[in-house]
């Protein structure tokens, strides 16, 4: 089944066309990595999926339902979202941050006592210690915040996870750990992931499919090995030139 379908989606801001006639099908359980120059519309594309941005024309289906006929608030509670700048709530403990979606949607199984255990389990899943639960975001490092952001996005067991450059603020080694953790989460939970990155090596390592965006259009949407073996456009060819010697998910 298709998790997300874009048909002929166009988005403009003022007289600038950000996304131009995008058509795209993402299967349930796919891990789509999205790459392209800064400002090419990656964040905009993610926000179209959870209705933070509305297209000018074209239609978007999420889990088979047209977004035009979907209650956005309910929809967003079923889509995990970790934003580009993390956006943890500074006045809430890490535990309360993680439990935010279950709490606003009064989700069963998240009573006071269960909440702590569930939040702790999510922290473990992203490689953090449970003693962070009672701390506040300002006392965490950049990398820890990003992990908490991912844990928070996973809390309500979403079927789709949108991740906007989630591994921006970390060093290479931590980045590799995070990559392995997200791969493990993807395998265990079988969720659909849309993952934005600036790093072609990361895109090819993590994705079951990689989407290359340029100038508001899709340059290529393919499996990482096909992107490497047969780049369809000069832009894609140039992009992968530098990354020949990196490993690829198969």
């Amino acid at each position: 089944m298709n998790s997300v379908v874009f048909s002929h989606v166009t988005k403009t801001y003022g007289d600038k066309t950000i996304l131009n006639d995008i058509s795209l099908e993402i299967n349930q359980g796919e891990f789509v990595t999205m790459i392209g120059r800064s400002g090419c519309g990656k964040t905009t594309l993610l926000k179209l999926v959870n209705g933070l941005v509305t297209p000018d024309s074209g239609s978007i289906l999420v889990n088979g339902k047209d977004l035009k006929e979907t209650d956005k608030v309910q929809l967003r509670r079923t889509i995990g979202y970790s934003i580009q700048n993390v956006g943890l709530f500074p006045h809430m403990t890490i535990e309360a941050n993680i439990a935010y979606v279950p709490s606003i949607s009064s989700m069963p199984g998240w009573d006071k006592t269960e909440r702590k255990e569930k939040a702790a389990a999510l922290l473990t899943a992203v490689g953090l210690e449970r003693d962070l639960l009672d701390r506040y975001p300002h006392s965490l490092s950049g990398g820890q915040k990003q992990r908490v952001g991912i844990a928070r996005a996973l809390a309500a067991s979403p079927s789709i996870l949108l991740m906007d450059e989630p591994f921006g603020a970390v060093d290479e080694i931590t980045r590799e750990q995070l990559q392995d953790q997200i791969l493990k989460i993807h395998e265990e939970r079988k969720i659909t992931i849309l993952f934005v990155t600036h790093d072609i090596a990361e895109a090819l390592k993590l994705g079951t499919k990689t989407l290359v965006l340029n100038d508001g259009r899709i340059e290529q949407y393919d499996t990482p090995d096909r992107i490497l073996d047969s780049p369809q456009t000069p832009f894609v060819r140039e992009l992968i030139e530098k990354s020949r010697n990196f490993s690829v998910r198969v």
């Binding site: 979202y81 934003i83 709530f89 606003i104």
Partner: peptide
Amino acid sequence: VDPDILEAAKGMGSTESQMLFRIKLPL
């Protein structure tokens, strides 16, 4: 209030009143 925080809150499915009472007013 920091727009990133508001965007995270909205993107996670907060209603308008949840945004006000859980995020904006406390901050």
